[in-house]
Every structure is written in structure tokens, then in C-alpha cells.
Amino acid sequence: MSIGSSDAAETSITRRGRPPQTREQADEVRARIVAATAAVFTRTGSRGLNVAQIIEQAGLARPTFYRYFGNAVEPLHALLTTSNAGLVGGIRTALSGTDEPVELGIRLIDAYLDWARGHGAMLRPLFAELHDPASPVSEYRERAFDDIRASVRDTFAALGRPAPSPLDLDAALHVCEYVVFRISADAGPGAEPDPEVVAEARLTMIRVLLTTLGTRTDLEYALGLPGLFPEGAD
């Protein structure tokens, strides 16, 4: 049997001078490098990211790193791709869960907050580079926004509602992004946000979404939901 046969390619990944490695083992090492990249990015941001810090964090030799990635930016791209997929996928799932417009808005906000919570301390440098054209983060942020905009417009169409204006939709998304940034920034490096602060921020995001993308009927429905809007003075 030829060394280059398809059967051999499916069962192992062979490197010159190294013993055969199964695909599962290769995937594990790749994931280890990406996880180490996340840890270094959390400490230094993308500008401080380099191969030396990644391999030290991962506990791997330099040749091992270069069997999977050509430079320090490539595992960052893998990390950001996974992050985008989690955000967009979570929002798409949220928007398919009900046909009640107000509940859809609340589910979208909760999906966004769940995504943010899953990033932990990495959220701080991630948000710090969102608007930096020199950072790869900025490019991925625009991709995510494009996908979220499309999902929201598709949802409005499925509900038989006019599509939101581009300005209203962007205003809602940018305010939500800013609120989550404030949560992470105010918590301080490596600290978990105060649950009460997160709860208040969630209400702010929901109210903004309702007033920018909702109708009068939506707002009247929302006024009947307990705790969503402050009670008026007696």
C-alpha cells in the first residue's frame, strides 16, 4: 500500500521526523494552542500577541506550534471565528424560539449576554479593540454585525413586519454593544461583573431595543411585563 493512500490520510497525520499522530490528537493540540492564544490575548491584546508567549502558555515546543499555525495571528483568527459563530448562532437560535416580538427582543438580549458571559476576562481586550482598524477583532466584529442584521431582518420578514431602518437597527446594536463594554470595563481586569449591574444592564438593553425596533403595540405589551420599566411616582 502506498504511504500516500487515502486510508492512511484518514487515520493519521504524519509529520517528518515525528511519530504518526491521530486526527483526534492533532485536534487536541490545535485546541490547546488556541486556548493558550486566548489566555495571552486576554493579558496583552492582539498587539502583544507573539508565538513565544503562546507556546509558553501552552507548554509546547516551537516546532509543534508551527506544524499547526504559521504565526501568532492565525490562532487568534481561529479564536475569533469561534467567538463570532457563538454570538451569531446564539442570536439566530434566540430569534427562532418564539413569534412574539417583545419576547424575541428579550431573547436576543439574553443570547448576547450569554455570549459575553462565556468570554470571561477576555471580553475586556476584545471590546477594547472593536473599533481599532489595525486589529483583527474589528474585522470580525463587522462580520458578526452583518450576520446579526441579516437575521433580524429575516425575522421581521417572517413576522410580516416592515424591516427596521438601517439607522434604527445599528443604533440598537451599538447601544447594546456599548452597554456590554461598560459592564466589562467597570468590573476591572480579570474581575467578574456584579450580577446586579448585569441585571440592570440587561433591562437597559431591552428597553433600548424595544424603543428603537418596536411598535406602539410592542411597547404597550412590554409595559405590562413586571420590572421592565420603572414604576411611576404615586
Rank of each mutant, 00 (worst) to 15 (best):
S2E: 14
I3S: 03
I3V: 07
A9I: 04
T11Y: 06
I13C: 15
I13Q: 11
R15Y: 14
R16Q: 05
R16T: 12
R18V: 13
Q21C: 09
R23Q: 12
R30T: 01
I33S: 06
A35N: 12
A36W: 00
A39S: 14
A39P: 13
V40I: 15
V40N: 11
F41P: 00
R43Y: 09
G45V: 11
L49W: 08
A52W: 11
Q53P: 09
I54W: 14
I55A: 07
T64E: 14
T64Q: 04
F65S: 03
Y68R: 00
Y68T: 00
Y68V: 00
F69A: 15
N71V: 09
N71R: 04
V73F: 10
T82R: 01
V88S: 09
S96I: 02
G97K: 05
L104V: 13
I106D: 15
I106C: 08
L108Y: 13
A111C: 10
Y112E: 07
L126T: 03
L126C: 06
A128S: 08
H131M: 07
D132A: 05
P133C: 13
P136T: 13
S138Q: 14
E139T: 06
R141D: 08
A144I: 00
A144L: 04
D147L: 05
S151A: 13
L159G: 04
G160T: 02
R161F: 13
A163T: 01
P164R: 00
L167F: 04
D168V: 04
D170H: 07
A172M: 15
H174G: 01
V175D: 11
V180Q: 10
A185F: 07
G188R: 09
A191F: 02
E192H: 15
D194P: 15
A199V: 09
E200R: 03
T204I: 08
T204F: 11
R207S: 08
T211G: 14
G214C: 05
T217G: 08
E220G: 10
Y221P: 02
A222I: 04
G227R: 05
L228P: 07
F229W: 08
P230L: 07
A233Y: 09
D234M: 08
